[in-house]
């Protein structure tokens, strides 16, 4: 099999993931896009491992480790998203902007009016 096929497929999947991470508003959809990117990297690792015929099978071992780390990441990420939703009432990334830089000298960083309820709660 030509090596360019899995490599190009991995590249395209990764770019689809990039689009999803940048364009999505819901935090869980961003996590889904991150999963796509991780899978693209896994496909690359497996393809190169099979191509190189590594005796230690480094690519496949690293793929298994990435799968496990991704499972841990999705667990922690969903717990954080749940906590943010519980505290703020929303999981939209666009509206979680307490840590942004103030745009002007008189622009206060917190804008409690647009956060709905439970404004100013920082315990996330």
């Amino acid at each position: 099999m030509h090596l360019a096929y899995p490599a190009v497929l991995a590249v395209l999947l990764f770019c689809v993931g990039i689009y999803g991470v940048l364009a999505r508003r819901n935090a869980i959809l961003v996590l889904i896009s991150v999963e796509l990117m991780l899978n693209a990297v896994n496909l690359n690792l497996v393809a190169f491992d099979v191509w190189l015929r590594d005796t230690l099978h480094t690519g496949q071992a690293l793929t298994l480790f990435i799968i496990a780390v991704a499972a841990a990441e999705i667990g922690i990420g969903l717990a954080i998203v749940l906590l943010v939703h519980r505290n703020r009432g929303t999981a939209d990334i666009d509206r979680l902007r307490d840590l942004r830089e103030p745009e002007g000298p008189d622009d206060e960083p917190e804008a409690p009016a647009e956060q709905g309820h439970s404004a100013g709660r920082q315990t996330a």
């Binding site: 360019a4 490599a7 190009v8 590249v11 395209l12 990764f14 770019c15 689809v16 990039i18 689009y19 940048l22 364009a23 999505r24 508003r25 819901n26 959809l29 990334i93 666009d94």
Partner: peptide
């Protein structure tokens, strides 16, 4: 579901795809 920066995201993704596919 989608935020306002959909078109910049599409531009970034297409640019990255073109570059990486060419190189690979």
């Amino acid at each position: 579901a989608d935020s306002g920066n959909r078109w910049p995201a599409l531009a970034v993704a297409l640019a990255a795809a073109a570059t990486l596919v060419t190189v690979v």
